[in-house]
């Protein structure tokens, strides 16, 4: 059935294309222009990013040096009453010795690998649902949208930025791009780095009821970005 259905659809499309009225379709394929070189670590980009994310109720923390990150993370985690955290593998966070430093501050990483078997998957996920904070890196940020971009993959799970009520991301100041089109034109390979690329612009929100903005409906209610030099 599938091959026949496929053939039926493609036949119908090809017949349609012969007669289709498609304004502005003629000519060569448009090539979206983005900045082809990596962005500079300009103070402007960081300012714009900070302004945009802050307006979305996200919080930006500037770490003067990488070795300040453990204290920042611990302070934020304690603010949210968290004892455990979900996280990317340490090698993807850019802060050597981070997990040991956090452990000495009373914060334990909760490791996981969701199984395929339905019953044990549910039990496993349920156990993760109570973890108070998620800790990830960030592959890029988008200044005009106040968004961080996370390429998930091996050692870089999705749930750390999704399940806990608070999400902390560590971002390098050199990875702030002006716009989404700039980033995707320059680094299309990000899409295929793992099974999931996500741009996160502030905490989870909804305005479905009476257009009143409310945070944390499904994803984290709090988003913290620690910017390292």
């Amino acid at each position: 059935m599938s091959a026949a259905a496929r053939a039926q659809i493609f036949d119908s499309i090809r017949r349609g294309l012969v007669r289709a009225v498609l304004p502005d379709a003629a000519g060569s394929r448009p090539t979206p222009e983005g900045r082809s070189s990596p962005p500079s670590a300009s103070a402007d980009a960081l300012e714009a990013f900070t302004r945009a994310l802050t307006a979305l109720t996200g919080r930006v923390h500037r770490a003067a040096a990488v070795d300040m990150v453990p204290d920042l993370v611990a302070a934020i985690a304690h603010e949210h009453g968290a004892r455990g955290f979900l996280a990317w593998d340490e090698s993807h966070l850019g802060v050597p010795g981070l997990f040991a430093a956090l452990a000495s501050r009373g914060l334990e990483r909760v490791d996981y690998d969701l199984p395929f078997d339905a019953a044990s998957r549910e039990a496993h996920a349920l156990a993760l649902a109570g973890v108070g904070v998620g800790l990830t890196g960030a592959d890029a940020a988008i200044a005009d949208a106040g968004a961080i971009v996370l390429a998930h993959g091996p050692g870089r799970g999705r749930l750390a930025s999704l399940l806990p009520p608070a999400h902390i991301a560590v971002l390098s100041a050199r990875q702030i791009w002006p716009t989404m089109p700039d980033l995707l034109a320059a680094r299309p390979g990000l899409l295929d780095a793992g099974s999931n690329l996500v741009a996160i612009a502030g905490p989870s929100r909804t305005a479905d009821i009476e257009m009143t903005l409310t945070h944390g409906v499904h994803g984290p209610k709090y988003l913290h970005v620690i910017v390292v030099p």
Partner: peptide
């Protein structure tokens, strides 16, 4: 919005 909160790209 400049971007939605979650622009989720699945490959």
């Amino acid at each position: 919005q400049a971007l939605s909160v979650y622009t989720n790209i699945i490959t």
